[in-house]
């Protein structure tokens, strides 16, 4: 597993992360991410066969709330920080495709 990351990889990742990076940034990140990943691969020195992945450092489970309705913010507070609004709605440039994942 090579730690190097190609320019193309960087472009792909930038697209996934919705960052319209400049050419100079792509160049810079290609080098930097490569060396960071190379360092990170140090983890491979360790045998983790049979080790449980630790997603939560505290052993907690079943944190649930009762189904009770609470007051919402109201339209004005909801939209107070909106870069653009139209009436009671957030306003965005027209969405042409329907790529909602839900």
């Amino acid at each position: 597993m090579g730690g190097r990351i190609s320019r193309k990889d960087v472009e792909k990742v930038a697209k996934l992360g919705r960052l319209q990076l400049s050419d100079a940034e792509i160049e810079e990140f290609t080098g930097q991410l490569g060396s960071i990943l190379e360092y990170v691969e140090k983890m491979n020195e360790l045998d983790t066969e049979g080790v449980e992945p630790l997603a939560h450092c505290l052993p907690i489970s079943n944190i649930l709330r009762e189904d009770e309705a609470k007051e919402s913010l109201g339209t004005e507070k909801t939209l107070a920080n909106a870069p653009q609004r139209e009436g009671e709605y957030f306003k965005v440039p027209k969405i042409l495709d329907d790529s909602s994942g839900v």
């Binding site: 609470k70 913010l73 909801t78 009436g87």
Partner: peptide, 19 residues
């Protein structure tokens, strides 16, 4: 805790969590 209500005025059932 936002209440579920079909047909409510837009953006009235919103709080910091679901926003």
């Amino acid at each position: 805790g936002c209440e579920l209500e079909y047909g409510a005025t837009a953006n009235t059932r919103v709080c910091p969590v679901c926003l």
